[in-house]
């Protein structure tokens, strides 16, 4: 491979990797948010993302709802749905048994239900998209070619991360969320309404996933299986450190770039296994990821 080609591959690989990595970052943020406050890895995150995308598809394409109405409506539906699930289902599961296995299985159940519902509507059969929210005109960065939509995706990920950072660091609600994550009993004693916080966190997590869906659906095309992208998000969260929000974003970029570089310099067949190798390597060599704190040992 000649030097010019390698240079082109590197530039394009990194730039495109940052874009797709932004989506992984948004989903990873959603996952980490829930994990920080309730120690539950949400196995339905991909399906929440997918369902929000189909909600937007339904509104924009089949109901011809104008964009300025469809977008907030989708976000509201996502928020409400997730908060409801947390309130009705997970609270009951927690009460019935404290075991984290049960909570994870309940989220697994949610993922099947959402997938089944979307398939029932009949929209899931053929890959679909809706008009992109930002134009897809080309933009050159060095020798790499991307679109305006790609740039928007990247900037949105950064904006959401900044927003969440401010939320968690400076607002009362954010501090309450962190407190619930560190020590729920103490938080309750301090007057924090655990129920409300959990619902808020789930709702917010779903909103972030919905934003990701609104941006990325036209780019990756929608099928009922599109929730599978969440594997990359889990890899991103692990690489970044499963309890760190900025880590989730950096992890997203790392996974996105690695995916492209593996595809360019090793083999296209290896792309699909790259995130799993990344997960195993990180957990073996440095389980707390790039930014996570020391892995907490539960005192029993």
């Amino acid at each position: 491979m000649d030097k010019d080609l390698i240079l082109l591959f590197l530039q394009q690989g990194i730039v495109s990797g940052m874009v797709v990595g932004s989506v992984y970052a948004l989903l990873a943020l959603s996952i980490v948010m829930i994990f920080k406050t309730s120690e539950v890895p949400n196995f339905a995150q991909g399906e929440i993302f997918m369902a929000a995308g189909y909600c937007a598809l339904f509104l924009l394409v089949f109901q011809a709802t104008p964009v300025w109405l469809a977008v907030p409506l989708t976000l509201v539906v996502a928020f409400a749905g997730a908060a409801l699930f947390r309130r009705v289902v997970l609270t009951q599961v927690s009460r019935a048994s404290g075991s984290p296995v049960n909570l994870v299985i309940a989220t697994l159940g949610l993922s099947y239900v959402l997938k089944g519902l979307v398939r029932r509507t009949g929209f899931g059969d053929t890959p679909r998209s809706f008009p992109a929210l930002v134009s897809t005109d080309g933009v050159m960065i060095g020798q790499a070619s991307i679109t305006r939509l790609d740039v928007a995706i990247f900037l949105t990920a950064l904006a959401v991360m900044a927003f969440l950072f401010c939320l968690f660091a400076y607002t009362k609600v954010g501090r309450a969320m962190r407190a619930v994550g560190m020590n729920p009993k103490a938080a309750r004693l301090m007057g924090v309404d655990l129920q409300r916080i959990h619902m808020l966190v789930w709702g917010l997590s779903a909103v972030v996933s919905a934003i990701a869906a609104l941006l990325i659906s036209p780019k990756i095309l929608m099928t009922a299986e599109m929730g599978g992208i969440v594997t990359m998000a889990f890899a991103a969260a692990i690489v970044g450190g499963f309890t760190s929000l900025p880590g989730a974003v950096v992890g997203g970029f790392v996974i996105g770039i690695a995916e492209n570089l593996v595809g360019l310099f090793i083999s296209s067949r290896a792309i699909v296994v790259a995130p799993f190798v990344a997960i195993m390597l990180v957990l073996i060599v440095r389980p707390q990821g790039l930014f996570g704190g020391r892995v907490a040992i539960k005192k029993v």
Partner: peptide, 20 residues
Amino acid sequence: VESVNPTINDVTAPFLKLRA
């Protein structure tokens, strides 16, 4: 020839190689 997995989301790598 480039062989990709049906679940692929980012086709930048295989496309670039084919174009090259």
